[in-house]
Nucleic acid binder design. Structure first.
Lengths: 217, 217
DNA sequence: CACGAAATGTGACGAGTTTAACAAAACGGA
DNA sequence: TCCGTTTTGTTAAACTCGTCACATTTCGTG
């Protein structure tokens, strides 16, 4: 109890958990009961050794000469990912992308959903999309407080991102997924993640075409 | 000339270039002529040391006691990122997300654009979105061949991703950005990148809430 | 029950990446 | 021109992560 051997789980291992979880669920749906790291490797495109190492951080989940019990893995990872806990999200910015996210609304994940949306444009306020009514920014504080939301998705453009983010944090949001490319300066306890499509495409091109750029010294 | 010191640029450094480039452009727009790594660090949220190390791979770009010339950096990085070369993309899957991408169409990047779109649903084929007409899958090969496109964005659902990806590759696509969570098995020379929103949200939560998951040994 | 086959969990290594620390270089005011 | 200040570029060390290799464990058949 005192000597908690709280081995810190590597960041990269955590980032692969959603992939493992989803793949295992698919396998279970197809009736697969047991799996070995080699087969899970081909399904996830992750090296079998890496999979075994990843799994080992959560205990001895497998059996030598047998493999892993799919149901057991799903239970363990589901618990870590808290997939059973309802995860409600707020959306700020209901433009093209925001609207698409709202229409989709994590359909495949029964416990994850955008439950409120905000925008500054009077033209979209009041609009109902997929059972969510777009609210004005002024109501943001009251709504996310009453719904006890602490995670938000932002599709607001760069120029207002800093201001909007600050408002989100002031109202209790602790994790933000932003689709704007500009980094934002926020308190350390806020977890921010950026998903800039342009950067992603540029990176894709950069990493494929040229693995090197000659540097004459 | 013979002794090309082609220092291989680290992957992580390359992945930060778009961020540097964009931030520097913003600074230039505001009239900033020179910048030091410390200030660029606060703007990009990257450690100043890391910035200097990154820059050093491209030569001695700065001056001691002075900093970096913003315009010079923009020129260098713009060249590496080939921002002046037009980069045309194909889109497969014109659902909610695909439509949003098409409406946005990298408006802020004058040299990057989706120039053709494909879908299997007869309901959307023929529709014109932002000057792009949605074509049937059957025309994919001919169109991307004539436009000489080698990069695609896919928003097709998981169950058809493998098949669609294979078709893309058969027709000359070498880089794919996919919004479906399932990994795909493709030849090694294809560069694939996944952007699964559900995984991103789960990761966000995982990395923030609990930096550790106790493992009793 | 015994034994070969199968598959895990992990020590060790090495590649890749970040960071601290500092010498060298250039600035800019007096 | 001189000199203290500023800031770079880089060496060295720390850290993270992925993979090899293999001892160990368990399986499952005869």
């Amino acid at each position: 109890m005192t000597n908690q051997k709280t081995t810190r789980i590597p960041r990269m291992t955590l980032s692969r958990l959603p992939l493992y979880y989803r793949t295992l669920c698919n396998l279970a749906d197809e009736g697969t009961r047991r799996i070995k790291s080699a087969d899970l490797g081909t399904a996830t495109q992750v090296e079998p050794t890496t999979i075994r190492r990843d799994f080992s951080y959560f205990g001895e989940l497998g059996r030598s000469g047998y493999g892993y019990d799919v149901g057991h893995l799903i239970r363990i990872f589901g618990e870590i990912l808290e997939v059973d806990e309802p995860q409600y999200l707020a959306l700020v910015g209901v433009g093209n992308l925001g609207r698409a996210l709202l229409k989709n609304n994590f359909r495949r994940n029964p416990n994850m959903a955008i439950v409120c949306a905000f925008d500054a444009d009077p033209g979209v306020i009041g609009e109902e999309i997929n059972q969510v009514i777009v609210q004005p920014m002024a109501e943001l504080g009251a709504t996310i407080a009453s719904l006890q939301i602490n995670t938000a998705i932002s599709t607001v453009p760069s120029h207002s991102l800093q201001q909007v983010s600050a408002k989100l944090v002031d109202n209790g949001i602790r994790s933000i997924l932003s689709f704007a490319p500009e980094p934002v300066i926020l308190p350390e306890f806020v977890n921010m993640r950026y998903l800039d499509l342009t950067s992603e495409v540029l990176n894709l091109l950069l990493l494929s075409e040229r693995g090197q750029a000659a540097v004459a010294k």
